[in-house]
């Protein structure tokens, strides 16, 4: 794990938070049974999948300034590809996974090419509209369960004896590995020449063009990469839940992804992972509260999210940085 993370960065406050989150995810299959709350393994598997989606969204939103309100579309494409192929008896991962990722890329290319003609609020609305089109398509697909969704009888089959996704622990650590890989890939991309161009376009698109960069091409490529990464999250989700429904690509899901990114810290590499973990744990915690709060957890959760957006600029990672530096200044 240390190979993947910058040793120097580990000493910073946000590095410490990231380390704790990684350890929590990596050790949950041991921690949860030890404290008698085994269901937390499931909670964390789900959380990590959403973290992958949030990391992918952060790539375009945090680093590229492209606020997509339709990112769940890719999650849905990934999940439905697995579901529909399994429905037709195709369970080999070697077929399912490439098809899911290629479809995500193609849809990313089309959606990106359309929405990148616009900016600001229009970009948000168009990404939302395009994703909702897919949502309605999934609702109207009677063959695949419409509103009721599609049960997946068999998880993806890699045809490798010891690597069997039917084993929950194997699936858990596959999700964990994919999450770490996505964070690592994002880190490479963000600091590469390509990443510099995307960040430059977020900072000042006109200047980038005046310098000689056809920025739209670069932003479109980033959009496709993020789409594929989110499609991967959908692939894992279909395997974990053994079920997919139109909810997976409906707009509240896209909104939740945005919240996770903002909550953790937009434009910080590990922020979205922290955001996803806090998002799910808090929701889980509030929903399980007995009485009034448990029944109406959204009453607390909603305002909390708004407070974070308003006051915790840079999200949790930004907050941790500021708390730490204030302490340092007092000494």
């Amino acid at each position: 794990m240390k190979v993947l993370l910058d040793i120097q960065a580990l000493k910073t406050p946000r590095g410490i938070v990231a380390t704790i989150v990684v350890l929590l995810c990596g050790l949950m299959p041991i921690i949860a049974p030890a404290i008698g709350e085994s269901f937390y393994v499931d909670v964390f598997a789900r959380t990590m999948i959403w973290a992958i989606a949030a990391v992918s969204l952060n790539l375009i939103m945090g680093y590229g300034g492209m606020i997509s309100f339709g990112h769940a579309a890719f999650f849905g494409i990934g999940a439905y590809t697995i579901g529909i192929l399994a429905f037709h008896g195709v369970t080999s991962a070697w077929v399912q996974w490439p098809v899911a990722l290629i479809l995500s890329a193609l849809v990313g290319l089309v959606f990106g090419a359309i929405s990148l003609r616009t900016k600001g609020v229009y970009f948000i609305m168009i990404t939302l509209a395009l994703a909702q089109m897919l949502y309605f398509l999934s609702v109207s697909a009677q063959r695949y369960g419409s509103d009721d969704g599609l049960t997946i009888n068999d998880r993806s089959d890699f045809g490798i004896g010891f690597f069997n996704l039917d084993d929950d622990l194997t699936l858990y650590y596959l999700i964990f590995a994919v999450l770490l890989l996505c964070v690592y890939v994002s880190w490479r991309i963000v600091n590469s020449p390509f990443g510099m161009v995307v960040r430059g376009a977020k900072s000042n698109d006109n200047r980038m063009q005046a310098l000689g960069y056809p920025t739209t091409r670069y932003k479109l490529t980033a959009f496709v990469i993020a789409g594929v990464m989110c499609g991967m999250a959908g692939v894992l989700d279909a395997n974990l839940e053994e079920f997919v429904s139109p909810d997976a690509l409906n707009w509240p899901r896209s909104g939740e992804m945005i919240f996770m990114v903002v909550l953790g810290g937009m434009g910080s590499l590990f922020g979205p992972v922290t955001g996803a973990v806090v998002f799910w744990l808090l929701q889980d915690f509030l929903a399980n509260w007995r009485g009034f709060i448990g029944d109406h957890w959204a009453i607390i959760f909603g305002p909390f999210l708004i407070l974070v957006v308003l006051f915790a600029r840079g999200g949790i990672h930004g907050l941790v940085d500021r708390l730490f530096s204030r302490k340092g200044g007092a000494q």
């Binding site: 490479r188 991309i189 590469s192 020449p193 390509f194 990443g195 161009v197 430059g200 960069y213 490529t221």
Partner: peptide
């Protein structure tokens, strides 16, 4: 960034 713009394309994703 200004110099990189004139070093061919920037579809290079890996090296920092």
């Amino acid at each position: 960034l200004a110099i990189q713009a004139h070093r061919g394309h920037s579809f290079r994703f890996w090296r920092p």
